[in-house]
Design a protein around this nucleic acid. Structure first.
Lengths: 184, 184
DNA sequence: GGTTAAGTCGAGGGTGCCCTCGATTTCTGT
DNA sequence: ACAGAAATCGAGGGCACCCTCGACTTAACC
């Protein structure tokens, strides 16, 4: 069933873009919970127009974060290209949380479930896939503690989210201590 | 300057107690941010009466948590009595976060600064004192990584708060991995 | 039992955010 | 240039929480 909607009118397309840009900026700075009214104001568009284009907050999230989550694939590939299994895994963690630390909204996305943004969910699944491979490789090489699993990484991610929020300069140290605990 | 206020009338004392009990229960279950109206309802007292007894939310916090934080002293003493410096330190962490995991409000208290509840702040300082001693002893014994400091423990506490909130059954595992990373 | 200070009550005003909808404006195809 | 479809606008209703204040009730003391 093809829902061939007519193309947007020029002014509408412009406003849509302004809204997306505003949302992306405010999400990154203030997190996923910025009032939608702030986004509208920042985009210089009325609140009614905002709701016309993006009826729910998750519509913004679904438009903005899949792109940003593509970075997850990039660091995943990068890590998979690293020959040393320990370096690959540890480097992946560094890169992942560096990404998270740069974007308050992304930090939120990785902690919440967003049942209404399937593309975001699937991007996270892809990321988890990479991470799983890295874990398996490290396990096979015997460099990672034998009982480590992807669930532990999920827990770590939530913990890191909090550390990043509270003290954006100390997360590397925290991570490095935790990672020490991971060696086989 | 002694502000000898008259004793409370019987009904007032009763209501005050009901309010404290309600607040303690709801803080523990739902965290520090329960609506004050819920507390009043749960205490079967009007919202006006609540404000009469406790003009701010921090007045509740200041009444409720110093008691609860006394448990911090207990586990601190217990740890100081343990002869093995590593066991003392690691056991302290276990006990501390077990406490935190039992009480959603306490979990919140340990993450926020509460400038308006000086008794709470000072109880935390006392706790930090114990922890500092335990760290120093472990460092002196050479069993703890040499650069560890009380600031790291503060970071850990925030991280643990998040882990406890999200997955109340997995915090022990998370902690044990982190603690592995701590051995000298 | 009467007096009165102390205490209780809850309606209601304030704020911040959510979301809708009818009046108005603007684009676009002819 | 005009008609009509498409967009825009923002006032306003709803909700959850905050907090206040004046009218009412009650305990405490004689």
């Amino acid at each position: 069933m093809v829902t061939a909607s007519r193309p947007l009118r020029a002014d509408a397309a412009r406003n849509r873009d302004k809204l997306l840009a505003a949302a992306a900026e405010l999400f990154a700075e203030r997190g996923l919970d910025v009032p939608l009214e702030h986004i509208a104001r920042h985009a210089e568009v009325s609140i009614g127009t905002l709701y016309k284009h993006f009826p729910t907050r998750d519509d913004f999230v679904a438009q903005i974060f899949p792109q940003r989550l593509a970075a997850l694939d990039v660091i995943g590939e990068k890590a998979l290209a690293e020959p040393d299994p320990w370096q690959a895994f540890a480097g992946y963690l560094e890169d992942l949380y560096a990404l998270q630390a740069e974007d308050r909204g992304l930090n939120d996305v990785l902690v919440r479930d967003l049942p209404n943004a399937p593309e975001v969910v699937s991007a996270c699944h892809r990321g988890a896939g990479h991470a799983g491979t890295l874990i398996d490789r490290a396990l096979a090489a015997g460099v990672l503690r034998a009982d480590y699993s992807i669930a532990d990484l999920a827990t770590l991610t939530r913990a890191m989210a909090q550390v990043i929020r509270d003290s954006p300069d100390e997360w590397r140290r925290f991570l490095s201590i935790y990672v020490e605990g991971l060696r086989a």
